[in-house]
Design a protein around this nucleic acid. Structure first.
Lengths: 325, 325
DNA sequence: ATGAAAGCGCTAACAG
DNA sequence: CTGTTAGCGCTTTCAT
């Protein structure tokens, strides 16, 4: 492990000059060459840890998401990564499992490792951002808002719920909604869209068709079973996210009600659906774009931007479309 | 950002003692208490960067995978993470996109950041491990072998291909295979299992039914289209991985051949399938276990284990089962 | 058991 | 443009 001292000696310059060469400050051409040659010769790799310690900041940004196995979040991660690596930042992906405790651990790591900033999909509405904020590290919230005034980028959840429900209401009488936990903002907002679509269609939202579950496959399964067991079951259903959609459709298939036998609209993409594209309606959520936007906002803050916090809502024009992602 | 010096002053001890308290070496009970109190008071968080610089090793392990959006790899990541965090290590997830150049970049970051070690799903058969190995950092290969003698854990790919094909051959005449790129070891081995199953069934493997494509959804789609266009199309197909399976089934659905109309066996889980569980045969690959095993092996090396490199093959007894993950 | 002191490798004033 | 120097915050001998 060669250091800048080794390189400096080999190139006949001072360590500072070596550092300058690797940081793009002005050095005479000949010395640059000498340093580069020596560095190559010695297989010199700058020690990032030392640099981070000195600079008190590293070129990595943290991304904390609640479920690394949910394609929605990996797509988001993709977006973050693309923008970040373009700008020379690495991103480290942390899985909070939707547990505030794990989230707190990772937030702690972020400050202890001097990460430049964090993009956080909050696990609860009470994320403790005190430590990281007082360390001066910017945080941007994605998917859900944090409990304080920080940059955030979220989906037009209400619109998505509205689009899905009103699409189904055009040709169906009893349109159910299966959402995530009611206390999660995204679930509540999408449900509100569902309600509004009913009202705008001149119908009172049927309370027994509104189910809050979990944003996971088993949540969708269990809720769908309950809906089918109703005395007067729905003839259409809005799935509050991709995984709920998967679970609901699985149950329908098991009951020989594979869509479009019973109509389904899913909020969020179905990247690995094996259904024919026309069978299910999808209201796509631009997760990748959300990641890219969040990354850009974060980098702006990292570079010292101090505009007032902005809240960006993505997907103003949500079109129900066929499945297939 | 309090430092150990601040804590030391507040607690009336030396910085060394504070360090000892946080590293579990012997310190008298009263000083421990004083230090802990002061640390809490000052909201002290040990600076990991400084520790890493001094110790020349950090408690993070790198995990480099070719496709973060493939559930197979996120499941693997889950396994790694569970074992690692249990042992007090964080894992940073890096997406090589199956590009050797990106892989090389991340390998470089791993040494520059003093990561304890790396778990690598090689993007090619010529990963350059010189730098990281000469830095003394252990590497364990997962999913595919590296081009040199290091610990590795892979799937019983041949068996998986064999199990899938022989299952289908019990009730079908023309069983195709769609695999990833032929030069990728996993693809080649699974194909070999498919061939062997034919021979054991007393049939010559039909060359026109063996297609090498890409390990992605579009690869599966395109190959399935080609198979259906054959003069004598197959009546069953083995998908070489989960994404190929998704693509193939999508195409089948579009041609009104939804499984089990045309029989499909998929190598690897179908976590988000929306098919009824009995429609598709799945030969499950224990990705999570692979991650856990790799993490354990890596940690052993990190702790100084110097046994000769081991090669672990997972899933000796692969049972074809119904879909649904 | 505890403290003093010397760095880990790099960067950023500050001179020159 | 270039070199000297002083740390970043922590761990770890080496004494005591």
């Amino acid at each position: 492990m060669a250091t800048i001292y080794d390189v400096a000696r080999a190139a006949g310059v001072s360590p500072a000059t070596v550092s300058r060469v690797f940081n793009g400050t002005s050095v005479s051409a000949e010395k640059v060459d000498a340093v580069r040659a020596a560095a190559r010769e010695l297989r010199f790799v700058p020690n990032r840890t030392a640099r981070t310690l000195r600079r008190r900041s590293s070129e990595v940004i943290g991304l904390i998401i609640p479920d690394i196995e949910n394609p929605y979040f990996t797509e988001l991660a993709r977006g973050v990564e693309d923008v970040a690596s373009e700008a020379g930042y690495s991103v480290v992906l942390c899985n909070s499992d939707a547990e505030p405790a794990k989230e707190a651990t990772y937030l702690g790591i972020a400050v202890a490792e001097h990460m430049s900033g964090v993009i956080l999909a909050p696990a609860s509405d009470r994320s403790d951002l005190d430590a990281i904020q007082s360390a001066g590290r910017p945080v941007v919230a994605v998917d859900r808002h944090a409990d304080r005034e920080i940059d955030s980028v979220v989906m037009a959840n209400r619109d998505a719920g509205y689009a899905a429900a009103s699409h189904l209401l055009r040709s169906h009488r009893r349109v159910a909604y299966i959402g995530g936990p009611e206390h999660i903002e995204t679930a509540a907002e999408r449900a509100e869209g569902w309600r509004q679509a009913h009202r705008d269609a001149g119908v009172e939202p049927p309370g027994e068709l509104l189910l809050f579950s979990s944003f996971r496959v088993d949540g969708g399964r269990e809720a769908m079973e309950r809906l089918l067991a109703l005395p007067d079951p729905p003839d259409a259903v809005v799935a509050g996210n991709n995984l709920i959609g998967v679970g609901a459709i699985q149950v329908l298939s098991e009951h020989a009600l594979t869509p479009p036998r019973l109509a389904v609209a899913v909020i969020g993409g179905l990247p690995f659906t094996t259904l024919s594209p026309s069978a299910v309606t999808v209201v796509r959520l631009p997760a990748r774009e959300m990641g890219m936007t969040a990354a850009r906002m974060l980098l702006e803050r990292v570079r010292g931007g101090d505009a007032p916090p902005r809240n960006i809502v993505l997907g103003g024009e949500l079109h129900p479309a066929s499945a297939g992602d």
